[in-house]
Design a binder for these strands. Structure first.
Lengths: 231, 231
DNA sequence: CCCTGTCAATTGGTAATACCAATATAGTTT
DNA sequence: AAACTATATTGGTATTACCAATTGACAGGG
């Protein structure tokens, strides 16, 4: 018999759970602002430092955004994975994306809804628009991949894929790497994405898997040609 | 031209980065205790609430453990992924593990060191010992899979695999599910793990991939037989 | 009527101080 | 040597204060 350590949750954790429940229940919608810290403290019967501690937990999970002098806003983002010490290199990101996004694509081919197909078409059009701009942000590219992860109907896959994209965008190493790629005119291939979409429209898991692998292979080759494969 | 929002980091983030650097640099080793909050505040020239806010960030990344009345200890864990709202079901965990751990195993077959092979043999022996106990915790099972993820030499894979295991152990739904499985005498198959180890010893990626897929298939079938596949 | 500038109120950021509760350590007693 | 007690050290939470950023209201000028 193994005894478990009795550890009561700290107050800030309880408060954070309560506040995230307000968001989950739709009481405070994306874009809306929380009551001020002082008001929340009063309503919940806790101190302002405790509210601030709870807000830190919510902030780093990504579901709120804190703006000094303005307020605390619900981002509308799903809670994301978070790591403080990011030492993941760009090729490691590509390698794990090759593994996970290919299979996510195959699962999506079986499980995708018509709504999600329509969303993918929209994202593809946005990518076409983005490509005309000089310093596009690849928001549409991320959206495209995020919809596929969502269509896999596995929330762990969804969380991990979005974390990888966030990692890719936040990492100093990765962003300077991506900026160099952009300057050299290397863009995510629209043709690759069109093939992915076609495979999903045909609900063909094998073709979807192959199309996504091909796409990430291309991205990896482009990166390797730029930096060399050891980066 | 796209303007970027100028946003300075908050003080607690700067402090958290500094403190995690102390750990990374080996200044404070696993098991060791941080100076008291009051002392840290004095040394860093910030207030105690700011130290506490920074510690919250480190706590939920898993690299420190806070014990009331005792102190703040370095856990020795690598920073883990963290999500507040865990809605990932046990079958979703198994599904993504099927995807990622199989490929991690194939990569490990190419990249594993003799030291890691020795660590795997030790973990296997510990699993044998654990199986004799009535309420084993599967620590050795986790260790076995964690070593393989590490041997893949992809830190993103390592982070995600450990996050999945932590998710599996922390989720209320998953732990009650695992407890039911344990009560019915369903244990992780030692034979499966032996086959995985053999494939890694032979440095055969294809056999390693197949062995890991077979193992997770077996775990999924056992779970499905118990709960039904919609859980 | 619209735009700009100013001021005050509201908001978050950080700090200092206080007190409570949990733990650890040292000393005393059995 | 072990057990018990007391004290010091530690984290947990709260109160209050002040600073800085933002927002909104209002007034004045074009």
């Amino acid at each position: 018999m193994e005894l478990q350590v009795i550890k009561t949750d700290r107050l800030y954790i309880k408060v954070a759970q309560q506040l995230s429940k307000l968001i989950r229940d739709g009481k405070i919608k994306p874009g809306e602002r929380f009551p001020a810290e002082r008001d929340l403290a009063s309503q919940l019967g806790v101190s302002r430092p405790t509210i601030r501690e709870a807000m830190i937990a919510l902030e780093i999970s990504g579901i709120i955004e804190i703006r000094t002098g303005s307020g605390i806003y619900v981002t509308g983002k799903k809670p994301t994975l978070y790591t403080i010490d990011r030492g993941v290199g760009p090729f490691e990101i590509l390698e794990i994306r090759y593994i996970i996004e290919a299979e996510a694509c195959a699962l999506a081919a079986e499980r995708i809804t018509e709504t999600q197909l329509a969303q993918l078409r929209t994202a593809l059009r946005e990518m076409e628009e983005e490509e005309k701009q000089e310093d596009a942000t690849e928001k549409a590219d991320w959206k495209f991949h995020s919809i596929i992860a969502e269509a896999s109907q596995n929330s762990a896959i969804y969380l991990v894929v979005n974390w990888l994209w966030e990692l890719r965008n936040q990492s100093v190493l990765s962003t300077s790497f991506l900026e160099s790629i952009r300057k050299e005119g290397i863009h995510p291939s629209l043709n690759d994405h069109k093939r992915i979409l076609e495979a999903l429209e045909k609900r063909n898991p094998e073709r979807a898997r192959i199309a996504m692998k091909h796409h990430i292979d291309n991205a990896t080759s482009a990166a390797a040609a730029h930096f060399g494969p050891e980066a």
